[in-house]
């Protein structure tokens, strides 16, 4: 930070003392580089907020239009799996935060450990998600591809869910709208899962780099910025979980 302040005071001296190897040529100082990339990451997250914003808006409006269909359709989701996944993701956020901490403290072993834990938890999330998706496929709840609304025309045909909720049969036109719920369910969780897959791919790359000692020499920008992305994906899930699983019980 001394570089930028000294030039700002009017000293024309070119401050070119020992540039760390990770400093790109067009930056005046490492701090400027860190600030710029960190800020860029935040701006990217802004676009991500708005990207999911369109989906949330659609969900909000459609849920209000087809309230009975959305309520009964959401009863098909397993709160147990949803809660487990929320916990998995929150813990992975914690391990990611600890990964950033290890990088800042320059603890290579800890960094690899926490990044690997995050990777494992991310995979666990996707694993649970795929169990849920498989169940949707088996029950003909994949809109457009493998679909039947019989569980909503005749809820008693699905004893597992029926025993818990005692849903009344929906009128055929309303039952058809459950497909909309599952369309949004797959669009939102699918978009979220896509972000998870991208995150895990980057994590794999980062673990390899970390084993070579990349992030524990004081250059934490990459880990820090990836952490922001990971936490953002966590936050999206924090909202998806109540909206899709919880709020329609009563």
């Amino acid at each position: 930070m001394s570089d930028s302040t000294s030039t700002a005071n009017g000293a024309v001296v070119e401050v070119h003392h020992e540039h760390p190897p990770y400093q790109r040529h067009h930056f005046e100082s490492v701090d400027q580089q860190f600030d710029a990339t960190n800020f860029a990451m935040w701006l990217f997250l802004l676009t991500e907020i708005m990207f999911f914003g369109g989906l949330f808006t659609s969900y909000l409006i459609m849920r209000n239009w087809y309230y009975p269909a959305f309520v009964e359709a959401s009863h098909q989701l397993n709160i147990g799996w949803g809660t487990a996944n929320t916990a998995v993701l929150i813990v992975s956020s914690f391990t990611m935060a600890m990964g950033v901490w290890s990088a800042e403290m320059r603890k290579k072993g800890m960094l690899i450990l926490f990044l690997s834990l995050t990777w494992l938890l991310g995979m666990a999330f996707l694993g649970i998600k795929s169990i849920e998706y498989t169940e949707k496929w088996e029950k003909f709840h994949v809109p457009g591809l493998h679909w039947s609304d019989s569980s909503f025309l005749n809820p008693a045909s699905d004893p597992e869910v029926y025993s818990e909720y005692h849903d009344k049969p929906l009128a055929p036109d309303m039952a058809a709208k459950t497909e909309m719920y599952f369309f949004l369910y797959f669009a939102m969780t699918g978009m979220h899962a896509l972000h998870m897959i991208i995150g895990i791919s980057i994590l794999t790359f980062m673990i390899i780099r970390a084993r070579q000692g990349a992030y524990t020499t004081g250059h934490v920008t990459y880990v820090e910025n990836f952490g922001l992305y990971w936490h953002f994906v966590d936050i999206v899930w924090i909202f998806l979980f109540p909206l899709l699983y919880l709020i329609s019980r009563y």
Binding site: M96, H231, F232, I235, I238, F239, P242, L246, I247
Partner: peptide, 23 residues
């Protein structure tokens, strides 16, 4: 309906915690 309000309020709280501290 209070159920969704409470659920979203808790979600917002969780988000605030993540944003303030983890991020």
């Amino acid at each position: 309906f209070w159920n969704p309000v409470v659920a979203l309020a808790i979600a917002c709280t969780k988000m605030t915690l993540v944003v303030l501290f983890f991020m």
